[in-house]
Amino acid sequence: MGRYLARRLLQGLLTLFLVILLLHLLTTWAIQLNGNPALAFFGDRVPSPAQYAAVAERFGLGDPCYAQVGNPCLGPFVTRLGDYLTGDFGTDLRGRPVTDIVGTAAPNTLRLFAVVTITWLLIGMTLGSVAARKRGRLTDHGIRGLSIMIDALPVFVMLLVYRYVLAVPLYTWAKDTFGSNSTVALLFKPSFSSDHPMITVIVPGILLGLTGSAAFIRLVRAAQLENYNSEHVRTARSKGLTERHVVLFHIVRNSSIPVATAVGIVFTEALAGAVITEGVMNIYGMGGVLWKAVRDSDVSLVVGIVSLLAIVTIVVMILVDLLYAALDPRIRYE
C-alpha cells in the first residue's frame, strides 16, 4: 500500500513535469509567432529598446530566445521550475503575485465545484437508479432520452440560454417581488457577485452539474442493472430482506465500484466546464482567471494556474484509485 502510493506520487510528479514542459513550449511558440506581450503594454506608442527591454524583463519575457521562432527557450523553463520549487509562482502582467490571485479565485471555484458535485451525484444517482429499476419501461426510456438530450446541449449553450433568455426576466421578477438583496433575487442574478459568492454560483453550478450528470446517469443505470440480475442479489432476496434493503445494501453498494471510477473522469470534464462556466458567468474563479489570462497572453498566470489544476487532477485520480480499493475488498495494492 505504502509502496503503491509512493509509486503513484512519483508518476504524478512526472506527469506534472510533462504538463509544465508542454505548457511552456506551447506558450513560448505562441509568443514567438504572435509577438511579445510586453509590446501590448505600450499600446499605440513605439517604445525605445531600453523601455521595451525593461518591461519584457518585468514580465519575465526578457530572454532573447522569445524572439527566435522555434527556439524551445529551455533557459527560462529551468528558471521557472526553480522558482516553482522555492514556492515562487511569479506575477501576472500587472505585477500581482499568482499565489495571491489563486488565493482569491480558488475558494469561488471550490464553491462552484461543491454545487456541481452535489448536482451530478444527486441527479445521476437518482435518475440512474430509477431507470435501472424501471428497465424497459417508459420511465427508463424517458430518462435515457433526457440524458442524451443533455449531452447534445453543451454547457455553454445552456449557460448562454440561461443568461440571456431566462436570468434577466427571472431576476427582474424576483427583485420586484422580494427586493434586490433577497435570496431569490441573488439566486437569479445573471452574473457573479463577490459579496455573495455562494448564492450566485448555485445556478451556474447546477447547469454545469447537469451536463456532467448525463453520462453519469447512463453509467449508474448500467452498473446497477448488472447487479439487479446477479446471483448475490438473488441470495439477498432469498433471505427475506425487503426490496429497499436489497437495493440499498446490495445493488447501490455494489454498483458504487464502477461509479467511483467515473467520478475521476467526470471531475476532469467538470474542470474544463468550469473554465467556460466561470468565463460566461463572470465568476472570479480559477477558470474565469484562466479564461482572461489566455485572452491577455498572460503567460506566467496561464502556466501557474494550469499547473495547479494539473496537481488537483492528479491528486483526485490517486484518491479515486484509493477509494476503489476501499470499496472493493478484492482489490489490494500490494
Binding site: D328, P329, R330
Partner: peptide
C-alpha cells in the same frame, strides 16, 4: 426468509463480494 432457507449452487457468485 423466516421458514425456508436456500443454498445456491455457485457460492462465489451467490455471496456478495464486498
Amino acid at each position: 426468509g423466516e421458514h425456508i432457507g436456500m443454498v445456491f449452487q455457485d457460492a462465489l457468485a451467490a455471496l456478495n463480494p464486498v
